[in-house]
Design a protein around this nucleic acid. Structure first.
Length: 187
DNA sequence: AAGTACCG
DNA sequence: AAGC
């Protein structure tokens, strides 16, 4: 719990420097229901032109804040990957926010696992296979849980079906923060 | 046309 | 209403 509070404080400082932005779907411009920011040398963004990783914030033009040491440690402890993560995507879910089924496929390095940390309210998470219409199952994810998508699951479709408001007091209000650590380039 | 981090 |  104290570790979660400590991590949350780091994330709040990051969001202060690199404000949450509202991504939109490529081509259609439809806004996502989640808000995003990033830390680390690269950040994931989505706008009318497409999905990509870039070194700067789309609105401020500033480099993303540094990745907190705690996250680098988590990566080292949980993945046995030789290279450090380059991007930490911060997804902010208001209670009504969702994330449709998708794959994380904008990374060159698809051997590196994807590591996710949940903070705040519980959510129902859905995990499938590498095929969009493959079978899926869903389960609860709660504050403090660390989930790794590796091996056969690295390219699995996944999404967030629902947030359960007021199921955690960590944030001081309803909502969920998900941190997703990724290695982007190969070397 | 597929495909889809949108949508129902 | 979720789970699909």
């Amino acid at each position: 719990m104290a570790r979660q509070q400590e991590l949350l404080a780091e994330i709040r400082a990051i969001i202060h420097a690199a404000p949450l932005f509202q991504p939109v779907m490529p081509r259609t411009g439809k806004p996502f229901s989640v808000k995003m920011s990033n830390c680390g040398p690269l950040g994931w963004v989505s706008d009318i032109d497409g999905y990509r990783y870039q070194p700067t914030h789309p609105r401020t033009g500033e480099p993303w804040p540094a990745m907190p040491g705690m996250l680098l440690e988590l990566w080292r402890e949980h993945t046995a990957y030789p290279l450090p993560p380059q991007a930490c995507l911060i997804n902010w879910y208001e209670p009504q926010a969702r994330m449709g089924l998708h794959q994380d496929r904008d990374e060159e390095d698809t051997d590196a696992p994807v590591l996710s940390v949940s903070l705040g309210d519980r959510c129902r998470f859905r995990l499938g296979t590498r095929e969009r219409k493959g079978p899926t199952h869903s389960f609860l994810l709660e504050s403090g849980e660390v989930m790794m998508l590796a091996g056969a699951n690295r390219m699995a479709f996944h999404g967030v079906e629902r947030i359960y408001p007021a199921t955690s007091t960590l944030l001081g209000r309803s909502g969920r923060i998900n941190l997703t650590l990724r290695r982007v380039t190969r070397a």
